[in-house]
Write a protein that binds this DNA or RNA. Structure first.
Lengths: 274, 274
DNA sequence: CGTGGCCTTGAAGAATCTCAAATAATGTGG
DNA sequence: CCACATTATTTGAGATTCTTCAAGGCCACG
């Protein structure tokens, strides 16, 4: 949703060099056995700290425990669990859910391959959300203690976590703006734009993708009901902005998706076209 | 809004030793001239890192530039400004506001004395919000560079910022839940509870205080209009939960303010008392 | 081929917003 | 210190958006 992300989506450019070339099986096997797999992982441009010096990157890589698996619907962690690791999604997708006493829930984020999660546990030492797999999912785990504390892991790792946290703060600020000030259709449009941008970062097509979550999850995330989300999708479809086939989305008119996205609203003079 | 904060509000306990005893003018003068004012500031329990060792606390104190003043309505920083400092509110109050291209705004936080702000600028190097004084306000400034980077300032300071960031993430998560899932009256009640808890932390009465912001700001923050906020106040007033006299608030029935706060809603069976 | 989960669509209802007006507080210049 | 202008707040009535409730269709899976 940032300016640069929007740019990416509008022009449907694939960011040059966003994703590393795939490693050969032989390379991968060697990397894994030598604890240097991160450098060869196709997600390393998203996970690995760029500014970090080589020896510290090696430390980082060595600390990572690879390949914890979570089945679709399973929990990576629950609210209240001691925060022992931060996680990177490797394959699949995860939602983080904040809970109320009376059972109401709010999804605070969807985490795609390359995304880091679990830092919400730094403050209290325990996670504040449930992390639920939307699909069969694999994650890498980074021990939280050295990353959060001043000893051991070193300052570079600490700075890395700090950056990730700051990014999370800004992401949530944008979400506050969405929930507080946008109409249903604007929210859905912003959601799709955001997803498109993130797929672009991952080297996948930003204008054609498959949603990893149900309508209910989208609605929950956007502060709407699943019916409202469905209706917004239908309206955008009939307006020619999108192709929607169940969870498969194709963006036909990125320009209109960007500009209020088929909401045909002009706030200043009240004119409503269509 | 955390469990412990709620507790504080329910029982209207003043947390023991939350606030340091006031320093004498002589002590203050010495402290200021020697760069050790933080230890004597009545807000030091909120600002100063608890786990920090004495020498590092002294470093922290020396880095702080004291007493930048902002007149009511003035900006401490604007979205896009280079993030050179983090700030601590000393007196007054500040709102941080996220902006949309079309002029819509979303207040993302109100910052009271003792609160830290400005960390949203860590990621991009520039602030993402406007910080506007609600009253004549004084702040202390902490240079951002040593706090964010690995050199100079040291790991302790870095860990401190990390903690503050993590707390901010959790605070925003709670706000997402509020904006996404709560009714208007629940939002207003949660807002007052939160404020009450924060005043309690500052050694002020949690059941009687003066709002530093206008109805419009409250509404904006809660994703409502000012009229809706005003109506909620009136309903809570007529229900005997609050005394509302313009910006002066007195909480008469904390129990009811906590439990859905005059909204008389029971989500499970649909029964609506009142 | 039946069952359950997910999605779509319609119609009625509720919560909140918008518009409008009156009242109260605050600030300003004389 | 007062009269006036300005701004903030309250309250009402009607409009609107979104939700709730309900029904039906599609698809995967046993």
């Amino acid at each position: 949703m940032s300016a640069t992300q929007q740019q990416t989506v509008v022009e449907f450019r694939r960011p040059a060099g966003a994703i590393a070339p795939a490693a050969t099986p032989q390379q991968r096997w060697e990397a894994r056995t030598q604890g240097a797999a991160c450098a060869l992982c196709h997600l390393h441009t998203l996970c690995l700290p760029e500014g970090m010096a080589a020896p510290e990157r090696a430390d980082f890589t060595r600390m990572i425990a690879r390949h914890r698996k979570i089945a679709a619907g399973g929990a990576l962690f629950r609210a209240g669990d001691t925060c022992e690791h931060f996680y990177f999604v490797k394959t699949g997708a995860i939602k983080t859910v904040m809970l109320m006493d009376d059972g109401r829930e709010q999804i605070t984020g969807f985490h795609l391959p390359g995304d880091m999660l679990g830092m919400d546990g730094i403050d209290a030492g325990a996670h504040t959300t449930d992390a639920i797999a939307l699909d069969d999912t694999r994650v890498c785990a980074l021990p939280a203690a050295p990353a959060a504390r001043t000893q051991a892991g070193g300052a570079a790792l600490q700075a890395y976590v700090q950056r990730k946290l700051a990014r999370e703060v800004v992401r949530e600020q944008r979400l506050l703006l969405l929930l507080g000030r946008m109409t249903a259709e604007e929210r859905v449009a912003a959601f799709l734009r955001d997803l498109a941008g993130r797929y672009a970062e991952r080297g996948q097509s930003p204008n054609e993708f498959t949603l990893p979550m149900a309508r209910e999850d989208i609605g929950n995330y956007l502060g709407l009901t699943l019916e409202t989300v469905s209706r917004c999708f239908s309206r955008l479809k009939h307006a020619g902005v999108l192709d929607v086939d169940n969870r498969h989305i194709r963006i036909r008119d990125a320009q209109r998706l960007l500009s209020g996205a088929g909401s045909y609203r002009q706030t200043s003079n009240g004119v409503v076209t269509h």
